[in-house]
Simulated scan of single mutants.
Amino acid sequence: MQYKHLTEFLTSNAMALQQGPIAMIFVEDEIEIASTLRHHKEIGFAKVLAFIPDVFDLPPDLKDVVHRIDFDASLESDVQAAVNQVAAAAPGVWMFFCFNAEYLFFPFCEARSVNEMLSFHEEERREAMLTYVIDLYADDLSTCPNAVSLRHAHLDRSGYYALARNHCANVAQPKERQLDFFGGLRWRFEEHVPTSRRKINRISLFRAKPGVTLREDHSFSEEEYNTYACPWHHNITAAVCSFRAAKALKRNPGSRHDIKTFRWHNSEKFEWNSQQLLDLGLIEPGQWF
């Protein structure tokens, strides 16, 4: 199931988008492509779309279960356009997007599927879910120069904070139930990160709706999609555990030689389970028990 471009996929296999939830994985480099695709297939996504450069290959076990679309994800504007194009083709369907070497975790994901979680979330009259991008990094950069290691992945157990999100027209008036979240590598190495890239909140899970589009900052044109909870109580939140920032900091010439290690006194080994994220307060179950 390989397509030369997104238009070919949408015109020749539109039925593939009728059943959700759908995961869109945008591949930027050759790192951990297979593990990313397998993870999202295993947690219950009905369809996995791999937007991947044609120079990269997929293992045989994935070729029959993943819809491969030739795509260059080097420009975020192209990623944004692709997400909006898929969403426009499947109104009412739950969708998720991330990049390679990023892994979605939600409360109780070891025993419950993403479809179960989204069904409950929808019953609470929610059409989008806040996800925190939690930076992962290898503990030893001398043995893992690209900062990626599944076996020796670490994360920050503290150092996260939130600021009010203000209206552009009225900076004194914060937006209701919206916050900007910070922390992880983007906070600790902020001198190497553009201001617009320092936030760790992303609306990764959303229900496609006519006229509602993804914006450049990974928020949506409908403000209710960008809220962290409904007006009545807390809702489920999830995490995208991501090596993306670590890869970029070790790849970029401006930061590559300045960073000898990502470890600090608040580093903790990532256990690859949702309970650890719940214990650290990085995700919450809301009313879902």
Rank of each mutant, 00 (worst) to 15 (best):
V240P: 02
L6W: 13
C144A: 13
A101N: 12
T7Q: 05
S255C: 03
L62A: 09
D180Q: 12
E102F: 06
L249T: 10
F220N: 02
G211H: 02
C168V: 14
T227M: 10
M1Q: 13
L75C: 09
Q80G: 00
Q173S: 03
D135K: 11
S149Y: 04
V133W: 08
L280H: 12
Q19F: 06
K4W: 11
K260D: 02
M95C: 14
F106K: 13
D140W: 01
A73I: 01
A46L: 15
A153R: 00
F106L: 15
F9S: 00
R198T: 11
D217R: 00
H5E: 04
A229H: 12
L179W: 09
H257E: 03
D29Y: 09
G254D: 01
P107M: 01
A89S: 14
A172M: 15
Y225W: 04
F71A: 10
K47L: 08
V48A: 12
K209A: 04
E191G: 12
L155V: 12
E268Q: 08
D156T: 04
P53D: 09
E123Y: 13
N273H: 09
F120H: 03
F120W: 04
R244V: 08
F71W: 08
S74V: 02
S274C: 06
I31F: 10
P253F: 05
W264H: 07
R38A: 07
F56P: 02
G286M: 10
S267V: 12
V55S: 07
L280F: 13
F181I: 06
V148L: 15
R202A: 06
P285D: 02
A111G: 10
G281D: 02
E76C: 10
F106V: 15
K250H: 08
A239D: 12
H67M: 03
S221W: 02
L37G: 02
Y228V: 12
D54W: 06
L130F: 08
Q178Y: 03
L280R: 15
V86N: 12
F243S: 02
A238M: 13
R68C: 14
L104V: 10
D156V: 08
